[in-house]
Simulated assay, not measured.
Amino acid sequence: MNIQQLRYVVATAETGSMTAAAASLYVAQPALSRAVRQLERELEVTLFTRAGRGVALTPAGERFAGRARRVLRSIDALRDADATGDRGAPLVIAASPTLQASLALPILSALREQGVAVHTRMLGCGSTEEVHDLVASGRADLGICDQVIETALAVVPLGRAEVRLISPPGLDLPDRVTLAQLAGVPLVLPTVGTDRRAALDRFFAACGITPVVSIESDERSVWMEAVLRGLASCIWHSVEALRAPQHEIVVRGFEPPMFQELNAVHLAGNVSPAKVHLLDTLRRFAELVAG
């Protein structure tokens, strides 16, 4: 799901025609239709049905379009704040290198496509606790986390990402794997002594699994390179599509499916108007995804 698709849905709902919506947005009608159909496939829901020579929202489409309008209003408010120069100091985001690449940058890229350029400084963190500490101390405006811990900070849910097994081709595994089937699969994992490795070790122990550790690295780019070279598989979650060539990797979900909850944290009341609009945009978009 991307912000442009939301504009396509709202314009189509308001005009009652994909042709008219495309004309109002100055895009080709086939491109708009493809984007809407792709969104319907992703959501596994029908947003529009044919109505005479045009289209009409389904009940599910009505609910989606209402939420989409709220997202777009938040983005427009953020753009207005940005245009008036209400930026103040750079937005400082604390997050792990993984979440900087897989969540923070896609969000900033999507906003830039909508005409909002957010001057941002990234602070790398090794744990969720470090993210919270940086935000609580005022050294970061916003923290992005993939673990939920007890905190006095304000928490904005950002949805969830499915956890998947990324492997080289040729492994004798089903399309969806059970945790028991991980036994014997060479894995690339974080290094021993890190918080993330400790969390994974606890997870494996709770599942009764002794993982086969092929490579240890704290750099997520090394994980994918290990898969591409056929050395190991990795357990991966991301809100954006993998950029690796699909013929060189195999992506499997787990059975039952597993998800990683994502959230943003900030000091309540300690944000500029522009940052308030940014947080509201994140919150509205997360509500849309959850809905």
Score class of each variant (00 low, 15 high):
Ala136Cys: 08
Val148Thr: 11
Ala20Ile: 00
Asp218Ser: 06
Asp141Trp: 04
Cys145Asn: 14
Glu150Tyr: 01
Glu62Gly: 10
Leu111Arg: 01
Ala198Cys: 11
Val188Trp: 00
Asp172Ile: 00
Glu261Met: 06
Gly115Leu: 07
Ala241His: 10
Met18Ser: 07
Glu162Arg: 11
Asp280Pro: 00
Phe259Val: 10
Val9Trp: 08
Val265Pro: 02
Val36Phe: 04
Glu113Asn: 11
Gly170Ala: 15
Arg7Val: 00
Leu6Cys: 12
Pro168Gln: 08
Thr151Gln: 01
Ser233Met: 03
Arg34Met: 07
Arg164Asn: 02
Arg243His: 08
Leu78Gly: 04
Arg160Asp: 08
Gly115Lys: 05
Ala68Phe: 15
Arg176Trp: 03
Pro211Thr: 12
Val118Trp: 11
Arg87Met: 06
Pro190Leu: 15
Gln29Glu: 14
Gly253Thr: 04
Asp172Cys: 06
Arg121His: 07
Pro106Gly: 08
Asp141Ala: 04
His119Pro: 15
Asp195Gln: 09
Val188Phe: 02
Leu91Asp: 09
Ala35Ile: 02
Arg196Cys: 01
Gly88Val: 10
Ser137Asp: 14
Ala180Asn: 12
Pro273Trp: 13
Gly269Glu: 09
Ala264Glu: 07
Ser217Tyr: 05
Gly230Asp: 04
Gly115Asn: 10
Ala152Met: 03
Ser24Gln: 15
Ser74Leu: 00
Arg197His: 13
Gln246Val: 06
Pro245Tyr: 02
Asp82Arg: 00
Val155His: 04
Thr120Leu: 08
Leu111His: 02
Ser24Pro: 01
Phe259Asn: 07
Leu134Phe: 10
Trp236Phe: 13
Ile215Leu: 08
Val177Thr: 07
Arg53Leu: 14
Ala205Leu: 07
Glu255Thr: 11
Val163Leu: 15
Ala31Lys: 13
Ala68Gln: 14
Asp280Glu: 14
Ala81Glu: 15
Ala65Phe: 07
His277Gly: 05
Leu111Tyr: 02
Ser221Arg: 12
Leu78His: 03
Gln29Thr: 14
Thr46Trp: 00
Ala244Arg: 06
Ile166His: 09
Val265Ser: 01
Ala35Arg: 09
Arg197Asp: 07
Val212Lys: 12
Phe48Val: 13
Leu200Met: 14
Thr19Ser: 11
